[in-house]
Simulated scan of single mutants.
Amino acid sequence: MSTTPTTGDLAWVLTPLLELPGVQHAVVATGDGLVEGASPGLERASAERVAAMTATLHAAARAFTTAFTDAESPRLAQTVVESELGFAVVVPAGKNTTLALFAAPDAHLGNIAYQMQVQVTALTRAMHAPTRRPDTTARP
C-alpha cells in the first residue's frame, strides 16, 4: 500500500499498518464512534461509518463475552470479523480509543495483530506524554 499521508490528528499511527501486505484501510476512532484518523483512499463518509460501527462492534463483543462468562466489564484484546472479502480487526488503543483495519483474505493476521499492538503502544505513549510548555526563559 502507498505511504501517502493519512488524514486526522492521530493518523500517524496508521502509516506502518498501511505498509503491511494486504492491509487496505485503517481508522483510529474514539470509543463513541468519531474519526480521529483515517487512511487515504477511504472516503470521509466511509471512515465515519467504520468509526461508528467500531464502537458498536466493541460494545456487542463485550456484551457477548458477558453473556458467556457473567463478567461485568470484560477487557477485549481484539475483535476479528472474517468475510469472503477479508478481515476486519479492531483493537482497543488506550482510553476511549480504538484502532480498526481491513485486510485482504490472504493477509497474515499474526503479523497484522502484532503490528497493531506495536502501534497501540506508541499511541498510548504519545497520548500520555506530558504537554510541552513554551520556554519562558529569556535568551540573550
Rank of each mutant, 00 (worst) to 15 (best):
S46K: 13
A51F: 02
L101R: 04
L123M: 07
A26S: 08
E43H: 14
A26N: 03
G31R: 02
L109F: 06
G110S: 07
N111W: 11
L85Y: 15
V120M: 04
D9S: 15
P92I: 06
A52P: 05
G22I: 02
M116W: 02
Q119H: 09
I112K: 01
P130G: 06
P16K: 01
A63N: 11
M1T: 11
Y114Q: 10
L85H: 15
G37E: 06
P140S: 10
D32K: 06
A138C: 11
T79R: 05
E82Q: 12
A55K: 04
D106R: 13
A107Q: 07
L76E: 05
A52T: 07
A77S: 14
L17T: 01
A63I: 07
V89W: 06
D135C: 06
G37Y: 03
L20T: 05
T98A: 12
L123H: 03
M116H: 05
V50R: 01
V35N: 01
G31W: 00
V90L: 05
V89S: 03
A55H: 00
T56L: 15
R125M: 11
A47L: 03
D135K: 08
E48G: 02
S39Y: 03
T66Y: 08
Q115D: 14
A26L: 07
V27I: 10
T121W: 10
L34A: 10
V120G: 00
P40Y: 08
T79H: 09
V90F: 07
H108V: 12
R49K: 14
F68A: 12
T3W: 09
R75E: 15
L76A: 07
Q115I: 11
P5I: 08
H108T: 10
V81S: 06
A61H: 01
V81M: 10
Q119Y: 03
G22T: 00
E82R: 15
A107F: 09
H58C: 15
E84V: 13
V28M: 11
A126G: 12
T65E: 04
V28E: 00
P105I: 01
P134W: 08
S83C: 09
W12M: 07
A129G: 02
M127G: 14
A129N: 01
A77Q: 14
A93F: 01
S2N: 12
F68N: 08
V28Y: 00
W12K: 09
L109C: 03
E48S: 07
Q24D: 13
A60L: 15
E43M: 12
T54V: 10
E19R: 15
A26I: 08
P40T: 09
P74S: 07
R44L: 14
T56D: 12
A55R: 02
V27Y: 01
T136G: 14
K95V: 15
E82N: 10
